[in-house]
Amino acid sequence: MTTPLLEIEDLHARVADKEIIKGFNLTINEGEVHAIMGPNGAGKSTLSNVICGKPGYEITSGSIRFKGKDLTKMSAEDRAREGIFLCMQYPVEIPGVAVTTFLKHSINAVRKYHNLPELDTMEFVKMVREEGKKLGIDNEMIKRPVNVGFSGGEKKRLETLQMNILKPSFAILDEADSGLDVDALKVVAEGMNALRDGKRSMLIITHYQRLLEYVVPDFVHVYADGHIVKSGDKTLAAEIEKDGYAEYTRER
């Protein structure tokens, strides 16, 4: 049996003294696409932040292993370098730092971790242009400061661009579809599908089924009150779209 890519066991985590994740279990193997659906405030973003090592979250018990390694002991940057990518629900604005500068630092930091030489400027520019083109990101946009003054759609496209450039083995997409019109949604979904090569895995976090029509998951989980309350295949997503989350949150 091969080691699962991600293995979360009986995870409990708190933020600001409030327990948000309560007994969460999930195993994701190579190549699998999982979707987590849950009502607002269920703790979906908290889960993705905990996996990625955002400061301010305290794991009180349980474990997270990635490629067999204990993630909880790794810095946020090392988790990213190991191949975890978080496509954020609210991408952060960084005034004064151009997208290109940012991307270059990012790629080279990851390459350095894997003992690869830095990309030379020509290679880098070519790659960003090619990947950007597929997502409708032009040269003008990558000269602007990161996310500053970007529309919701532009922000999500930039997240997708970063993901496609870094080619993570595991991507968490936190509400990648929020704030997108149908056209932008299709572009972002294509970007996500481009990474599905049977080896890379994904965790799609979403409130609605909409995105799952374009990026079809292998497994769907319903997440409420800090843990998974039901798992199934893609038909579960359709069910939730029809009936809502009421059934799962009633117990609260």
Partner: peptide
């Protein structure tokens, strides 16, 4: 954190912000 989540080391990230 945004920069760290992209693999940029915390110290390097600080330097980038200071430069900017």
């Amino acid at each position: 954190f945004y920069m760290q989540s992209r693999g940029i080391g915390r110290e390097e990230a600080k330097q980038i912000l200071i430069d900017a």
